[in-house]
């Protein structure tokens, strides 16, 4: 009996060991080093003496008006992209949940933006939102929703719209994938039981599906919030932080 317990308590650690040791060495240790560097006037060259300056780097960042502007841009990006990615991703996952001959095709189509590199899609969006690009063409000349062409990338507000549109467009496929996997974990019997009880579509969704996939929802939300704060490539390539640093984000 005692042997049994000893073995049982060692088991989880054995399962964790290979991954966690690697993770500590290759991710956590460098992260601590990076954090440590942030307290120094860091000289990157070996041998050179780096001076300890304590919180100076942070103080400088917090006093810099530009830092706050960047922070608010990152915040706006997060607020504007995370909810749509979750809602639309889940919506599409629900539509694609059932087996049908066209289902694999649609999955690939929705996933295409995810597999295309950030550099390439950023450049694509730059051309779509150019002064005489497809977006202006569609909204002004074709649908007549606007009475003139808009210089999307020339002002903070409109440039953020383009950056956020890109973020949502590229991210939907990703959240759709995780929701699809999670939806497979919802036992059909539960849904059927709810149907028997006379629950309508929306009620079934609220009472059965949503609670069942909540771990996935939490996961996606956390990941998207982190990813939203780390947005960098698309901003750099779309506007280069312009006009005059107005669209800079925290990382840049």
């Amino acid at each position: 009996m005692t042997r049994q317990r000893a073995r049982a308590s060692a088991t989880p650690y054995l399962f964790l060991a290979p991954g966690f040791i690697l993770f500590l060495a290759v991710i956590i240790y460098p992260a601590i080093r990076a954090f440590q560097m942030s307290f120094f006037d860091w000289k990157i060259v070996p041998g050179a003496v780096s001076q300890f300056i304590g919180l100076d780097n942070y103080v400088r960042a917090f006093q810099d008006g530009h830092f706050w502007l960047s922070l608010s841009n990152s915040g706006i990006y997060m607020l504007a992209t995370v909810p749509p990615q979750i809602v639309i991703g889940l919506f599409i996952a629900m539509l694609l949940k059932r087996k049908s001959p066209t289902q694999p095709l649609f999955r690939v189509l929705f996933y295409l933006p995810v597999v295309t590199s950030w550099v390439v899609v950023s450049l694509l969006f730059k051309y779509l939102f150019a002064d005489s690009g497809l977006v202006n063409f569609t909204l002004h000349d074709f649908l007549h929703l606007m009475n003139r062409d808009v210089s999307w990338l020339s002002a903070r507000g409109t440039a953020l719209i383009a950056i956020c549109a890109l973020g949502v467009w590229k991210g939907i496929g990703w959240s759709m994938m995780i929701f699809l996997a999670a939806l497979q974990g919802v036992p059909e019997t539960l849904e059927e039981a709810a149907t028997m009880d006379g629950a309508n579509r929306w009620q079934r969704f609220r009472a059965v599906t949503l609670p069942a996939i909540s771990p996935a929802t939490v996961f996606i939300t956390v990941m998207l919030v982190i990813g939203g704060l780390n947005v960098f490539t698309s901003v750099l390539l779309l506007t280069g932080g312009g006009p005059g640093g107005q669209t800079d984000v925290v990382l840049s």
Partner: peptide, 11 residues
């Protein structure tokens, strides 16, 4: 043109 003030969408 406003290309000079950072409109990356200008010609």
């Amino acid at each position: 043109p406003n290309l000079i003030t950072g409109n990356t969408g200008a010609t």
